[in-house]
Design a protein around this nucleic acid. Structure first.
Length: 572
DNA sequence: GCCGTTTTCGGCCCGACTGTTTTCAGTCG
């Protein structure tokens, strides 16, 4: 993967070039490409191999010059321009930037004055009280640096979406109990349903912003106050992430929600379009000749005034959605209400915590039309996977419950895909099932070609309805196994195997990028929770959010079908 | 260095907060 390495180089070029007035715009160009490279699903080296320099120049922000730099890196592992500048400023910017309030200019000043290259150097200099004397710094900044360094150890970096949503909702219910706060909404990456969050953004309208901020800093999970102002306050939560509260006038609500939802790249582009139409867009409104025309209503008016379709928050990543909106081609995305059942559930029979009947009752509360019981198979001993005989016996239980309850309980399994791609149950057993999920759980470190073939072999058995968590990644813990999803998708199309969007908080697998990638093919998806207890059903919103980030409509998702439609799809 | 619903040259998002200043620069999102 060359993308992140090259992005790192361009990021540093930005840092160094941005301090000089003469090169600050050139710096921006490098920064833009750095960000583009990091969010791009395709590897630049593949792109160059396949399409040459023209392929590289298709990347937004990449012109001839930067394309040449990328090629130079791919061929030699170095970029001469950067090597030269780096020898002048051998600074570990990434390390230093972990300190809040340190940016390129201050970092370079610290290097010039004190030779500081990294956090270690910085810590030493601060402890020796050398920082305060440097122009632009002072006693307070020295203290802040020391405080931030000691705090770094306890920061967790990015938290899972599920955690963030939880925390955000807790804050909102805390704030809205007061009588001076009117509206209170989740914004930022949480609203965009990003799989991990670096911070939490909350937006509130209030009659009394001072009182609101005072209330906010007294929230029970607040560990410390980082910034406190009239309109913006930042606290550090005990989970290790920060939470921003912005208080705005009710009259600016729509514009503010648009602005604070982001993403940054999306907003920059939208604001440029506004300028192109002689408007000015900021968090207070959409202005034409200094008169505010579309601020107080909801966000939709802003997009519509710019001659665009409304763009759902989950799509706002500058991945082509703006161009689509300008052509009025924003698709109708799936929503949580479209889901008619959950097709990946575990019970006590393998490693679940609840009985089948308890799981059925919980599904009834969700008003589901159907669910599928899909326990692990014998290969997965750690999860108490069960064998053919036990499945046959278990299906009697399911038959009885089907008599008793007004919900269709499908017989199924999450069958292991063995090393050679065969399935971990006999054909006769699989033949008695309504819904077969096949997943890779063991021997996950294989060469890309072998893993791809393994999964394709499983699909080619013709018994697999759903490919479970297709890449096997665990967020913040384990990267996906090597697999070529393009190839897999072709077979999914041919054998009517749906790709799972596993909604379990740590999985979210397929993720948004892989959904975008595979939806080029005529494949279906199944959004499942992989619940191991009755509370797991609630994770469905994470999977639906991920599907929305992958631009999916409900017509592509099999568990939005009614029971008849679903059974037709599952029939092999 | 890149880019163009006017542009192949002249722009490049924009406002809040902080700490350093004595009117502002740097950072952040």
């Amino acid at each position: 993967m060359s993308n992140s390495e090259i992005a790192g180089i361009f990021e540093n070029l930005y840092n160094i070039l941005s301090i000089d007035e003469k090169t600050k715009f050139e710096a921006l160009a490098y920064q833009r490409v750095a960000r583009e490279l990091q969010s791009m699903p395709d590897d630049v080296s593949d792109l160059y191999d396949k399409y040459g320099i023209g392929g590289l120049m298709k990347i937004p922000g990449v012109g001839k010059g930067i394309a040449q730099h990328i090629i130079e890196y791919l061929k030699t592992g170095k970029i001469e321009k950067y090597e030269k500048i780096k020898s002048e400023y051998p600074i570990d910017f990434k390390d230093l930037f972990r300190i809040e309030g340190l940016g390129p200019k201050k970092a370079i000043l610290l290097y010039k004055k004190l030779g500081i290259k990294n956090l270690n150097d910085l810590k030493k200099a601060a402890e020796e009280h050398k920082i305060a004397d440097i122009p632009g710094f002072g006693k307070k900044s020295e203290e802040l640096i020391l405080k931030n360094i000691s705090m770094l150890a306890s920061l967790h970096g990015r938290i899972l979406l599920a955690q963030g949503l939880n925390e955000a909702r807790k804050i909102i219910s805390y704030l809205t109990k007061s009588d001076f706060i009117d509206r209170c909404f989740i914004a930022g990456s949480t609203r965009r349903m990003k799989e991990t969050l670096g911070d939490i953004d909350i937006l509130a309208t209030s009659k009394d912003s001072k009182k609101t901020m005072d209330l906010f800093i007294n929230f029970e999970d607040a560990r410390s106050v980082m910034i406190k102002g009239e309109t913006k306050t930042t606290i550090l939560l005990s989970t290790g992430v920060t939470c921003d509260l912005r208080v705005i006038n009710d009259a600016s609500f729509g514009a503010a929600l648009q602005y604070f939802t982001g993403s940054k790249d999306h907003n920059i582009k939208i604001r440029k379009i506004a300028i192109g139409n002689n408007y000015k867009l900021n968090e207070y409104g959409l202005f034409y000749n200094d008169s505010n025309i579309a601020a107080s209503k909801d966000e939709k008016f802003i997009y519509n005034r710019l001659n665009m379709d409304y763009i759902p928050p989950e799509m706002r990543e500058d991945r082509g959605e703006i161009e689509l909106a300008l052509q009025h081609r924003i698709p109708e995305l799936i929503s949580l209400n479209d889901i008619k059942g959950d097709l990946h559930l575990h019970t006590k029979e393998s490693d679940g915590l609840n009985t089948t009947e308890e799981m059925v009752n919980a599904a009834l509360e969700k008003r589901y039309e159907y669910i599928a019981m899909t326990n692990h198979t014998k290969n997965l001993k750690i999860a108490h996977g069960i064998g053919d005989q036990d499945f046959i016996k278990y299906f009697d239980t399911v038959d009885k419950l089907n008599q008793k309850y007004k919900i269709k309980i499908l017989k199924g399994a999450e069958v292991d895909i063995l090393k050679d791609g065969s399935l971990d149950l006999k054909d006769e057993t699989l033949g008695q099932m309504d819904c077969v999920i096949a997943s890779v759980h063991m021997n996950i470190s294989m060469e890309k070609e072998d893993m791809t073939q393994r999964v394709i072999n499983a699909i080619k058995t013709g018994k697999v309805n759903i490919l479970g968590h297709p890449t096997g990644r665990l967020i913040n813990k384990r990267s996906s196994y090597e697999i070529e999803l393009d190839e897999v998708s072709k077979y999914c199309e041919k054998y009517k195997t749906a790709l799972e969007i596993n909604s379990s908080p740590e999985r979210l697998d397929l993720n948004d990028e892989n959904i975008l990638k595979t939806s080029k093919y005529n494949v279906y998806y199944s959004i499942n929770t992989d619940s191991h207890n009755i509370y797991g059903y609630d994770f469905m919103e994470l999977g639906v959010g991920t599907a929305r980030r992958g631009w999916l409509g409900k017509e592509k998702v099999i568990n939005t079908m009614d029971l008849n439609g679903l059974m037709k799809f599952l029939k092999k």
